[in-house]
Design a protein around this nucleic acid. Sequence first.
DNA 1: TAGGCCATCTGGTCCT
DNA 2: AGGACCAGATGGCCTA
Length: 407
Amino acid sequence: MNATQLTELMSSHDFMQLQQQLHHNNNNYNTDGHNGLSPESAEGISRPVRRATRRTSQLSNNTCDLEMTDSSSQSDDTSGGGGSSNGGGSSTTTNGQQQGGSQDNQRASSRGRGQQPGNGSCSSSLTPNSAHSSSSNANSSSNRRRKGALNAKERNLRRLESNERERMRMHSLNDAFQSLREVIPHVEMERRLSKIETLTLAKNYIINLTHIILSKRNEEAAAMELNSGAVGGVLLSNLTAENGGGGGLGGATISANAATLCFEDTMPNGASYDCALLAATDGSLLNASAVASTASSMQNLQPQSMHIQTPLDHQQANLPHHQQAMLSHVHMGGTMLQPQQQQQQQQQQQHQQQQQSTLILNGNTPVGVGVGIGVGVGVGVGVGVGGSSGTFPDVNDNFDEPFREFL
DNA sequence: TAGGCCATCTGGTCCT
DNA sequence: AGGACCAGATGGCCTA
């Protein structure tokens, strides 16, 4: 499934079906990145299930002849890149080993060096050009050859070590991507999110959360003004780390009756999630035209029957404190609130609903913000923006302010 | 078969 | 000097 299809999925599915699908997928989703669905069982799959990742210690398993004394056997190629006969990940098919702590499955492929005739282990590249260029060294004196041989051996070893470090670096990077996939809410698909999709969703998620927080704070500030400070707003910071007792795993399981999982931004192919369309697929969803009047009603959202396990459930218990706190920010829908806080908020809501439904955030941009918490994969955050511009309020001045504490 | 995605190798560059 | 980082190149896997 590519980004376009993802967009279509998000914009065309009946929302309940989507939720059911999410629930189903979540039940089949493994933290190792494999969703458990076989290609045969998945419908409409365009990309395979999570492919096993090649994780080998090629250095330790390398059988390349490090004792080569003929420099012509080693690449002195300095032309860069192009001539390299890659064939990486060769030993995958033979050793099947995984490095400790790996979350990825061994890639069940036979690609790479193993398919190269007569090789099977040496990772050094040998290009025709390099072979030619280095062959001239064979005419050197024995001393030079000996010296050159040692250099070649050392170079080869260095190269192998460098390759190993590079693999480890990329593995750690991929682990980071996987960790990111598991904490950002997204529509569970048959295949894992690609890297670019992960980054895009993460970015949009952060943006949406930021806007929510800022909107919330502005809302509270407005309430404070209206109440002349009589009713203290529930500061967002108070919501952090307030893991509701009933919420399994720190309340990461979220329920709600109105929410949309929607990230309004472009995908790599230029497509975009149409949040309005997604919202329109379900009558209970907040939409752009309605949110203006629901700016403060989000806290009225009550948990309902849907109770969807999320990737966050798997993760939050193990998350660092700051991440747990960050996730807790999302639970401002009410379930995380203490009774006293709820009462105060209800007072605020009643008052605000009487007084205004449009907020002025950071300037002159009037927006109405409705937020639905819940939905399928963890947290669905839908931010509908009223007003003519259809854009988020200008928060550039303090965009990162809500998250500075996590830095 | 083309295109997307990915893992790996590789050499260059930057940083400590 | 050595390691981290980066980008180009290559090839495998998979689906449309």
